[in-house]
Design a protein around this nucleic acid. Structure first.
Lengths: 239, 239
DNA sequence: TTGGTACGGCACAACTCTGCGACAAACCGC
DNA sequence: GCGGTTTGTCGCAGAGTTGTGCCGTACCAA
């Protein structure tokens, strides 16, 4: 989570999703919403969040079973946010592997504080001894050092990236080959949706191409899909 | 944490200590009790627990300041257990770096569930290898004497560092090359999270640069990453 | 070919983020 | 408590980045 933490809000009530989503967006988080467990699973496939806020009482699959299932495969932090007020419910929720449990009606600032507490714990980075960096993603003749936010050329020369460029490139590298619409790219980089005549992504792509492509006029790495978006066209290797 | 988790219970009321202690012992934990912040500190020296349960309202030093102080030096999980029921109190507690917050009167089973949730998270974390305690860390033409909290120049001249400066520098030296966000730096230095308009880190960086950089206006050791944070840009060597 | 739309790139304006001096609040040893 | 030190806040100036307008070009559908 080098950029903006990404939080998924799962609740069958639109107003709650909107409320929580809006508040957390305001607080600088990137938000995805889902109205059911299956919607959450679709979301996970596309774009895994750093934390999940989960309602319990939902029609169909309930939050507890969603949690149980998530825990089988992941360690994603989960915070229950629900109207069930009974001690026992809280205990069951926590026993299922949730990280925290907050009761509706809730104070948004408390939700925020709890989110931060959980993320703080999850992200606490262990001290590193050496410079050799952990996570780098290689493609073509480049390698992106995610921790250091630096793009290294095959010749070992570093190209400085701006924040937006870094996020954009990271978004591409995390979805290699996939055609990403401007809207998705906006979502992945700044966490807001593009209004219809937004050309900012085009611009960022252009800027990024200038740094990454051999011949920016004839891009070979970041391909344009007319009317669709862009895609990264390269073998990527994570190390 | 080898086999049995060790939990410290800090509360000025004997009955609470006994109650919680007994219950948790029954549940298979190893318990230590302390009736005040200073008692806790003595306990920490002898035998560090895996988790601390902390009351807020205590005569003398209150739980919040105990928490603040603990966070400066450790990442020990802390759960507040207290009668203060106000939202705001909870938020403050969590912002100070606590992991959870439970209100008296409480259901022991909920306490247990929350303890488990926190420990589960902590233990599932990175292999959290203990860093061999280095006495001094060298970089560029400096060496930091960690024990004496003193910065020695190549010419043997010592530069005094304030506490915050020392912590900041240490944080950088322990994560060389990494881009650290203000939030992470807050975490690493004072153990609390930064609210969005916090500029204190900028200031500390500025102050530190004045002591460390050859030309503070054109920093070469502590680099700024626009929109991202700061990073230490130097070979470090631990001894 | 022609019209309509989407994209590329340039340049500039607006904006956001940062550096840092100054000040005030908090802290600390006495 | 008291004076010195340290640390957080405010505010402004300056730096760097990002979005927008514009126009030329590429692409698609008749």
């Amino acid at each position: 989570m080098e950029s903006v933490p990404h939080i998924a809000v799962v609740d069958d009530h639109r107003d709650i999703r909107d409320l929580v989503g809006k508040y957390l967006t305001q607080q600088g988080y990137r938000i995805s919403v889902a109205e059911s467990g299956s919607a959450l699973r679709r979301l996970l496939e596309r774009n895994a969040p750093d934390l999940i806020i989960l309602d319990i009482m939902m029609p169909g699959e309930d939050g507890l079973s969603v949690c149980r299932q998530l825990r089988r495969s992941t360690e994603l932090p989960i915070i229950f946010l629900t109207a069930m007020a009974d001690d026992t419910d809280r205990i069951i929720g926590l026993e299922l592997g949730a990280d925290d449990y907050l009761i509706k009606p809730f104070n948004p600032r408390e939700l925020l504080a709890r989110i931060r507490a959980v993320l703080r714990r999850v992200n606490s980075l262990p001290p590193q001894r050496e410079m050799p960096k952990a996570k780098t993603i290689s493609f073509e003749r480049w390698s992106l050092d995610v921790g250091r936010r630096e793009l290294l050329g095959g010749d070992g020369v570093g190209v400085p990236l701006s924040t937006a460029e870094f996020r954009l490139l990271k978004a591409f590298l995390e979805h290699p080959g996939m055609v990403l619409s401007r809207d998705q790219l906006m979502d992945l980089t700044v966490g807001r949706s593009a209004d219809s005549f937004d050309r900012s992504i085009d611009n960022q792509v252009s800027r990024l191409r200038k740094k990454v492509e051999v011949d920016p006029k004839n891009p070979s790495i970041i391909k344009t899909h007319w009317g669709g978006g862009y895609s990264l066209c390269a073998e990527v290797e994570r190390a």
